[in-house]
Design a protein around this nucleic acid. Structure first.
Lengths: 206, 206
DNA sequence: ATAATAATTAAACACTTGTTTAAAATAGAA
DNA sequence: TTCTATTTTAAACAAGTGTTTAATTATTAT
């Protein structure tokens, strides 16, 4: 028993698939309508324009993208463990949505509109207890002195880039999609150890 | 005294600027011709088509992109120093061409054609003495056991991503281009220490 | 059932796209 | 100069673009 999606949801699903894989300028309204199995005019009937539809998809993606991270930030875990889990969950999320990093970098960088504003990072940081937790760990000497945004940049660099670099790495290694997934799981271990060792140099070995 | 470029070079320069900042589908032949200060038909007279011009630009960029790295690989330095210099030079190159990482990820990932083939990585690795150097360092216990491509992925992740993430970080930090450049220089230090500490855990502190 | 509203369609609209054509301008060689 | 080949231009071309219109179908409320 397949549950039938509403017309709007069908369009949103199709639009997300196509926008993510081809970009805003790499696809047409008709292509999205066709993927959703319906007429072109319906896309503009339910959503005002192609640009408006794109904005909706982008907000949706950015929301998904930031949700898992902030859930972990808010959680009540020791900072080192939190860092490990953050990397773990990020690889998990990106394994399900591997095109998102390339999409964000490729589509959101060159637009005039700034999509990142809507994320309201600062407020979310305040809400999470992560900032005071970092300060505390640094005062105790458990963590090196480094600002929060740099930490996030280190984590994101090592989580997102391996997914973006897939075409290149696959060419070098001559491996298929399945083998690349395995390769990513090994790389995740390297990344976790590297970052944790760097941020928490005095940690107990176990 | 300004030296006048040839028509073809003027078109190539304009095409590179526009392709890099807007992508293949984000710009038009007329836009490129206009940027070069000439007629549309001239672009197709000197270069067969928009697609052909794009291919030429991509090869040129990929060549620049891989050149500096391979020069360092081939050089006669101890492995740890080589790693430091590689990160240093990569940040230097990307500071001059900050849009290249986003361009490569955004444009080369979704194309049917595989642009990375032409780089012939394997042959270049053989030519450089880096592989045997790594093996030697690992047998001596100076370097952890990790394959070369993973090392490169670690280095590239931490060099390229910070340039791609510029729009996002600037939004979070509310900083201008100049401050972001300073921020990158600090981040480069973090990255260098983190990677070198991880790859060469028994190194002498100085 | 009937009227009113919403959803869907095919067709058309005005505009931009990459590319080509044919004429004009320029340069070089005889 | 005159002839020839190359370079440059304006104009046109067919195809594709996002969007709108007007007519048709489906749904809902009375």
């Amino acid at each position: 028993m397949v549950k039938e999606l509403s017309t709007e949801d069908k369009i949103l699903d199709a639009a997300r698939r196509i926008f993510v894989s081809k970009g805003f300028n790499g696809c047409t309204s008709r292509e999205i309508a066709n993927e959703a199995g319906m007429n072109v005019a319906l896309v503009n009937y339910h959503f005002k324009s192609k640009g408006n539809l794109f904005d909706i998809i982008v907000s949706s993606i950015l929301k998904d993208f930031s949700l898992s991270i902030f859930e972990i930030m808010k959680s009540d875990m020791p900072l080192m463990h939190k860092t490990r889990i953050m990397i773990e969950k990020e690889y998990e999320f990106l394994s399900k949505h591997p095109e998102i990093p390339s999409f964000i970098v490729g589509e959101l960088g060159k637009k005039d509109k700034n999509f990142f504003d809507c994320l309201q990072f600062s407020e979310l940081f305040q809400e999470a207890n992560i900032l005071s937790q970092i300060q505390e760990a640094q005062e105790k000497g458990e963590m090196i002195r480094i600002d929060f945004v740099s930490i996030m940049l280190l984590v994101m660099s090592n989580c997102h880039f391996p997914f973006m670099a897939k075409p290149m790495i696959q060419t070098i290694h001559s491996i298929d999609d399945s083998s690349y997934k395995e390769y990513l799981m090994i790389h995740k271990q390297y990344v976790t150890e590297m970052i944790v060792n760097y941020l928490f140099p005095n940690k107990n070995k176990n």
